[in-house]
């Protein structure tokens, strides 16, 4: 008895580098229960042959943890940005299209360079400027409620979904994006971070800062970690508004 093996059809956008024209390649991958997009990409690595039998090269993509905590394997799957590790084949309509994120410089195939997001974290001073790592005793007390708010914000893995879906984030704008803004809220609510609150607000009141947000709220819809990004932005709107008034009327 021969059993016909079920296969999964993939359509993958291939591009050697940012200068060459992209083209599409299709692949048929043997189906296994519970498989995700990563598994399929590995199958292609083991056997880089297209659906019509043509030899090709392995697809380049980024991956690291495969549990949706590192953010590396983000790509555009069936038109929507998400992590490929949690993209289970059973939940996707076929052919499954894989494309790179569009808001970052393309490196190759599904790989992009998200340096701009890390630069944004630098710009907004997303850290607590501790005095040093020497033994300075216990940290500040924190209520369980504040911890719960902070923890959710702190789960941001800089994956780029929020800015990929943001109509205001592109190479014509300098917008830092929701992820970095939300970090400002995080550090501004921490008992120590609060001390540099105004310094941090200054970093987002210039060009490319919070005012570049167009309020489309796509960020909060696509965030895989369900971070309340629009609440963060609105909260920072409040903080910057009050600080703006303070700057006008206290000088």
């Amino acid at each position: 008895m021969t059993e016909i093996q079920k296969t999964v059809r993939f359509k993958i956008k291939r591009q050697k580098d940012s200068e060459t024209q992209p083209h599409w390649e299709e692949f048929d991958i043997p189906y296994r229960a519970g498989m995700n997009v990563i598994t399929a990409l590995w199958d292609i690595a083991k056997n880089p042959v297209t659906a019509n039998g043509q030899k090709t090269t392995q697809v380049a993509w980024d991956a690291s943890c495969l549990e949706e905590v590192c953010g590396a394997c983000t790509m555009v799957i069936n038109g929507k940005v998400r992590q490929s590790c949690t993209a289970l084949i059973d939940h996707l309509s076929q052919p499954i299209t894989l494309e790179p994120m569009t808001k970052f410089p393309l490196v190759r195939d599904l790989r992009v360079n998200r340096q701009r997001m890390f630069d944004a974290l630098k710009r907004v001073k997303a850290w607590i400027p501790i005095d040093g790592t020497y033994d300075l005793g216990e940290g500040p007390k924190l209520s369980a409620q504040e911890q719960q708010i902070g923890y959710v914000l702190s789960k941001c893995m800089t994956c780029g979904c929020c800015v990929e879906a943001c109509p205001q984030y592109n190479d014509r704008s300098e917008f830092v994006g929701a992820a970095a803004l939300s970090q400002v809220r995080l550090f501004n609510l921490h008992p120590t971070g609060k001390m540099q609150k105004e310094e941090r607000l200054e970093t987002i009141m210039g060009s490319g800062g919070i005012e570049d947000c167009g309020n489309s709220q796509n960020c909060v819809e696509v965030c895989p970690k369900e971070i309340p990004l629009t609440t963060s932005i609105a909260e920072l709107n409040r903080q910057t508004t009050l600080y703006g008034f303070k700057k006008i009327f206290q000088k």
């Binding site: 038109g79 109509p167 014509r172 309020n215 796509n218 819809e221 696509v222």
Partner: peptide
């Protein structure tokens, strides 16, 4: 409007339509 890149067809959420 200079920095606007519409994607309401790809991400057809209510708020995104309002934005557009």
């Amino acid at each position: 409007l200079w920095a606007w890149s519409d994607n309401s067809a790809r991400y057809p959420y209510g708020r995104n339509w309002m934005y557009t």
